[in-house]
């Protein structure tokens, strides 16, 4: 009797799998683990090339910390909005969930607009993907992050307009949870990028020329 009662109390949906985790959610987490290596490689490339550019503009001449701080804050708050959207979906309030999904998409778009502004400014100041190592590594790393944000915005908009119309099913709640996990991952990648490339890397300047560098290595 007691066992029956326990079973009825258990309203968390148990997926029909060995691990109790639905296939899709496990897939998403494996993908995120894999994506760690993807962004890790780009960030490591950036770090290997710190202070190696032979021509300007250098990070200390061009990075705009106040603007980026604002866009970082926007992305962080979009993460908060995302978690609220998932939370309200889990509580079965469709309207609030939809509101917060659209809020996330809006904040993500604002972040992308900040990035477009930043890129345009940099290009106008002479930093392109070809100008030096800093330009190459910076644009490609933040560009791929921006691409992830863009895909996330598309995903969320698709969800807001295709799925979140009628009554919620456990499947559509999980759809949103997965989009949320992806979104938070994009956010934590930015947490690392903001700290490592903007705040710590702000003072990076001109590198030693190849000959000077070789001399330093040999001399040291």
């Amino acid at each position: 009797m007691a066992q029956v009662a326990v079973k009825q109390e258990q309203h968390v949906h148990v997926a029909d799998t060995n691990t109790g985790i639905s296939n899709r959610k496990l897939l998403l987490w494996v993908f995120l683990a894999s994506d760690c290596l993807f962004f890790g490689s780009f960030i490591a490339t950036y770090l290997v090339y710190r202070n190696q550019s032979t021509t300007g503009p250098y990070p200390n001449e061009i990075l705009d910390i106040p603007i980026t701080s604002v866009s970082t804050f926007v992305l962080l708050m979009s993460s908060l909005a995302m978690v609220l959207a998932v939370n309200y979906a889990q509580r079965n309030s469709v309207g609030l969930a939809r509101f917060w999904i659209l809020a996330v998409a809006a904040l993500g778009t604002v972040f992308l607009l900040f990035q477009i502004y930043e890129f345009t400014t940099f290009v106008n100041e002479g930093l392109t993907i070809r100008s030096n190592l800093f330009g190459t590594t910076f644009f490609i790393l933040t560009g791929f992050h921006g691409l992830h944000v863009f895909i996330g915005v598309l995903w969320l908009l698709g969800m807001a307009f295709a799925h979140f119309k009628g009554a919620l099913t456990s499947r559509s709640v999980e759809d949103l949870e997965m989009a949320g996990l992806y979104w938070h991952f994009v956010d934590i990648v930015w947490i690392i990028i903001f700290t490592v490339i903007y705040l710590i890397g702000f003072s990076d300047g001109e590198g030693l020329s190849t000959i000077e560098h070789a001399a330093a290595v040999v001399g040291g």
Binding site: Y49, T54, R130
Partner: peptide, 21 residues
Amino acid sequence: IQLSLDRVLDTNFFNPAAGGD
């Protein structure tokens, strides 16, 4: 991706002339 960008868009990832390693 870095290699294709170097080859197609002339980026500097593996370009020693720009300090690439």
